[in-house]
């Protein structure tokens, strides 16, 4: 059975040296916080050392390896969450390989070639694993952002009596219901006179969307708020006509800017009236 006596001793004796070089390599040319990286590198190196100590054949499923795997998980997820680039992440463990190689070639030429090759392979394996975790985490984040975009419909207060709801993405029945409810709640809560539905970012415009917009307008009117539309794309305009949806009673504006200034004018008249 193979042993890893020499590389073990080398890592053990050069621990601090390796960490310094490794940290320097991974932080080179970037503004990453050095002390944080020193912590990460030390923890990882010690866990890797425990695995190497065990011997390459026994690493698989060992307690030591599970501990290392767990650490790599939090390491890679942290990087995905904090917008580290894929290259930065992929290079991280490869830099360890280079660092160890430099030390071997400078101070410990007696480390056997195959001992070093096994070490190399091991680091390659965990580098691949790290990158996999990193990209899974990234995908999850992207998916949840898309979800947030699809499901949250922000309402912006333009002035004391004007609300803006920019509609985004795909409007299905469940979402349309939510849009109507949150808009109605918001106009009543804010006592808004005018609500602007901006359609610029609506992905597809079909009969369903058109009917839901009409429903929103009527429901808002019944609570006492006027809804106006802005940003109907050429495509949406064609669809509306082709489907025969009657939006003639609805006030529409080519740009959000024009819609807002109309709402302000309306406001001025209403305010003048009240006094």
């Amino acid at each position: 059975m193979k042993t890893y006596e020499k590389i073990k001793t080398l890592i053990h004796e050069n621990r601090d040296n390796i960490i310094i070089h490794w940290v320097t390599a991974v932080t080179a040319g970037s503004a990453i916080d050095k002390s944080r990286e020193t912590d990460d590198c030390s923890v990882l190196l010690d866990l890797i050392f425990k695995c190497v100590e065990l011997g390459y054949e026994k690493i698989d499923k060992s307690e030591q390896y599970l501990l290392l795997e767990k650490e790599l998980h939090s390491f890679a997820s942290f990087r995905a969450l904090n917008n580290f680039t894929p290259t930065q992440t992929a290079n991280y463990l490869l830099e360890l390989k280079r660092t160890v190689y430099t030390i071997v070639s400078e101070t410990a030429r007696e480390v056997l070639a195959d001992e070093f090759i096994d070490f190399n392979n091991f680091i390659d394996d965990i580098a691949v694993l790290t990158f996999q975790i990193f990209s899974d985490a990234r995908e999850e984040i992207i998916a949840s952002q898309a979800y947030a975009l699809e499901h949250d419909t922000p309402i912006v207060k333009i002035s004391r009596s004007i609300l803006l709801m920019p509609l985004m993405g795909i409007i299905d029945t469940a979402r349309a219901q939510k849009i109507i409810e949150s808009l109605l709640d918001a106009v009543v809560e804010n006592q808004a006179e005018t609500a602007i539905l901006d359609m610029t970012a609506v992905a597809t415009f079909d009969t369903h969307v058109a009917n839901n917009i009409l429903k929103t307008i009527v429901a808002a009117k019944m609570v006492g708020t006027k809804v106006i539309l802005s940003g109907i794309s050429p495509n949406a305009a064609m669809t509306i006509v082709k489907l025969g949806v009657d939006l003639s009673q609805v006030e529409t504006f080519n740009t959000l800017e024009n819609a807002i200034s109309h709402a302000h004018e309306r406001d001025a008249v209403l305010l003048g009236e009240a006094s």
């Binding site: 109507i180 409810e181 109605l184 429903k215 009117k221 019944m222 609570v223």
Partner: peptide, 21 residues
């Protein structure tokens, strides 16, 4: 609000009534 959207879904659009908040 909930009453208004319920009426719309039922198909009772009270559009000819002047409504205020």
């Amino acid at each position: 609000p909930a009453v208004s959207s319920t009426l719309v879904d039922m198909g009772m659009m009270l559009t000819k009534i002047d409504t205020f908040q």
